[in-house]
Design a protein around this nucleic acid. Structure first.
Lengths: 236, 236
DNA sequence: AAAATTATATGATTTAAATCAATTAATTAA
DNA sequence: TTAATTAATTGATTTAAATCATATAATTTT
């Protein structure tokens, strides 16, 4: 990580509007910003590591992050993604536990680093924030449970389709409204869908010949979202 | 559900000591108990159903409950268990969402039913409770993520072993310190491990001939816990 | 107590997906 | 700019586990 020339604005002036911290009032934002560090993480750099002691809250100002856990024989399982406005590490801070997963920058990321103490203080004084965190956890738990069922019951094709939908929901499209605004390797898509790289490649080309998606080098274009949802066999 | 002759004591006199509500002070317990209903649910009876609107918090005074979700083609996936002292439904209440899963009584259960309003009020006034809920959610999320990785990466044998360990951790043993204190059908164990009934049966007999467990009718005896952990291929 | 339903058990067969193997393409480093 | 590494692709083979098919045992219901 570089702590350098860049300077991310204080929470009070942060242009992100979606994130959970945005619901705080000016006083609380000021408190939270006080003493925060600004970090730049390069693509591929690890922000925090599964099992390490948790001393900081990370708030993504700009960038894309993948959260993963190690499974059997060191095989990676991607559990979630995070983007601008999302916070990372709060679970560990509030439960006094090591980080549950590893956070890796998927592109160059600008991230605010807030100390445990400051975050705990703000949380303690603010029922609204606690409730928001409960709701956030609740949402994450819901999708983890759904992901579990998907992996347990769905076919690889359905899971790959589902993975693509998750990517659309997490990162959206480029300006053309059709090209996925994120690039994962085939092996990362496999780690997300819980399958092998080879099978992922074959399934993607299958979806491509079904005219559901289009593969252009590293880019994946979602040419028929409706059909993609059908391929994923979900209804909710 | 029967609302009848039985009467569960007020939270202030509840003999359960492990549950999350036990950390409340007398005033809060009194508030929570005020207006609660006592219900008896027979074995197999549904306490609440996935997708239904959430109006109540359920606190298990006595009994065993399974939480499940419906997957593809209505196939059931067991996501968690709950027992005396555990609360159910709080996620939905605090997020204003329908129940995320279906809760089914595995044995006759005595359950306190607390209204959404009362619970919200107590939670709002009590940072400690919010924090406990965050920690509880955090724990559930962690195990859901672990379960996800297990299902995605482990063999059936490892998953069945893991399922048995979860049952031990959730419900413990009978007085003999060896017989699992809960009875699931083979099909339910399959729904927990994310496999088929036939494969579950075969795998259980395999574990039995490996002298890891012993099958006595409906009962499962854990004759070699250490070996069971080894069979599950976990280290944490 | 008999009938009906549900759960358990076992064998045979199929199949989806992993693994193994080798090739080509694309990045990254020297 | 070439060499080295990493990623993507495609084919062949293996395998774990699902499914199908019956049979038997154990509960429930009547």
């Amino acid at each position: 990580m570089k702590k350098n020339n860049i300077e991310i604005p204080s929470c009070t002036n942060c242009e992100n509007s979606a994130g959970i911290l945005c619901s705080l009032n000016i006083k609380e934002k000021t408190e939270l910003s006080c003493g925060k560090l600004d970090g730049i993480f390069k693509k591929g750099e690890i922000i925090f590591k599964e099992g390490n002691n948790a001393y900081n809250l990370f708030c993504i100002h700009k960038g894309k992050v993948k959260l993963s856990k190690l499974g059997k024989d060191g095989k990676e399982q991607i559990v979630r993604f995070a983007k601008s406005g999302d916070i990372l590490g709060y679970r560990s801070l509030l439960s006094n536990e090591p980080y549950h997963g590893t956070a890796t920058a998927m592109v160059e990321c600008e991230i605010c680093i807030i100390s445990k103490e400051v975050f705990q203080k703000v949380n303690e004084d603010n029922y609204k924030l606690s409730l928001n965190l409960i709701q956030l956890l609740s949402k994450d738990l819901k999708s983890a449970e759904q992901h579990l069922i998907d992996v347990a019951q769905k076919t690889v094709k359905e899971r790959i389709a589902e993975a693509l939908i998750l990517l659309v929901n997490s990162f959206g499209y480029l300006e053309d409204k059709i090209t996925l605004n994120v690039n994962l390797t085939r092996s990362e898509i496999a780690d997300l869908a819980g399958t092998s790289t080879e099978t992922t490649i074959r399934t993607l080309s299958q979806l491509s010949s079904d005219n559901v998606i289009k593969l252009e080098g590293k880019n994946i274009l979602i040419t028929n979202f409706k059909k993609l949802v059908q391929s994923s066999n979900t209804y909710d």
